[in-house]
């Protein structure tokens, strides 16, 4: 069985600090996969390695059968592998609609397209997506003036605007009001089911990740500790020890 994303024996250390060691994960196409682990266990480092922020020391990362380890961040993004950030990143000086309009796919952007006016379909699509994440009536506000939670939603909409094949989400519900969290889970599931976007989600909120993911990988101290369906992970003694501490 071929996987959309295959990480094999990835290792990364920063000086003497081993952030990732022999990590292998598979993400099949069309699925929602979870990635959990205590703070400092190397989840974000793994994300950064996958999207090309830093080279890995050894191992291989393949996306749709292509090796990613030698590619740079924008090249990987153009292949349809996108990530969102734990510390939300949006274009603060532009309004929400503009934030989405500049997030269209750039896979085959020609030099001439850079100087063409923005087609009306793009504006329409931007407004539809803003409605989808519930920011429609804030669309003319500067993105920098939105609350943190709203910025997370905007960043999610920007990612969807790019029509990725796969999306890496770094704590999509951190810092978000509990009543909004259900809305986010629904939207993530919708994006997966209707738009066919494969998701790999880092999450600390267990209720969210157990609800969302079909398969979960758990990291601890830079190593893969356990993997399995949510039910198994919940009852895995090693995972419980990693989170709560063992004697």
């Amino acid at each position: 069985m071929s996987h959309l994303l295959e990480v094999r024996d990835a290792a990364k250390s920063f000086g003497g600090v081993v952030a990732n060691e022999n990590i292998s994960i598979d993400v099949p196409e069309g699925k929602i996969i979870g990635l959990i682990g205590p703070n400092g266990s190397g989840k974000t480092t793994l994300f950064n390695s996958i999207v090309g922020y830093h080279p890995i020391d050894s191992g291989s990362i393949k996306f749709s059968g292509k090796e990613l380890t030698q590619l740079r961040v924008p090249q990987i993004a153009r292949m349809g592998l996108l990530r969102t950030f734990q510390q939300t990143r949006i274009y603060g000086g532009m309004n929400c609609v503009q934030n989405l309009m500049i997030s269209t796919p750039t896979r085959n952007e020609s030099l001439r397209a850079m100087f063409r006016p923005i087609p009306p379909e793009v504006t329409e699509q931007a407004e539809e997506l803003l409605e989808f994440v519930g920011l429609y009536n804030k669309r003319w506000l500067l993105a920098g003036d939105l609350s943190f939670g709203q910025q997370k939603l905007l960043e999610f909409a920007m990612a969807l605007m790019n029509k990725p094949k796969m999306l890496l989400l770094d704590e999509p519900t951190a810092g978000i009001n509990p009543t909004l969290i259900n809305g986010i889970i629904d939207r993530l599931k919708l994006a997966n089911a209707e738009l066919g976007i494969t998701l790999l989600v880092i999450e600390h909120n267990m209720r969210v990740i157990m609800n969302l993911a079909e398969h979960i990988y758990c990291l601890a101290h830079g190593q893969l500790l356990a993997e399995g369906v949510p039910k198994d992970i919940q009852h895995d003694q090693r995972v419980i020890d990693a989170y709560l501490g063992a004697n």
């Binding site: 999207v51 961040v73 924008p74 993004a77 153009r78 996108l82 990530r83 950030f85 990143r89 949006i90 274009y91 603060g92 000086g93 532009m94 503009q98 309009m101 500049i102 997030s103 796919p105 750039t106 896979r107 952007e109 397209a113 850079m114 100087f115 063409r116 006016p117 923005i118 920098g144 920007m158 790019n162």
Partner: peptide, 25 residues
């Protein structure tokens, strides 16, 4: 008023984000 303007504004606001969205910065 068109794509070029939005793109350089995006570079101004967050160039790392623009790169991670695949923009030809």
């Amino acid at each position: 008023s068109e794509r070029f303007g939005l793109a350089i504004n995006a570079v101004r606001d967050d160039e790392d984000k623009a790169e991670s969205m695949g923009l030809y910065t």
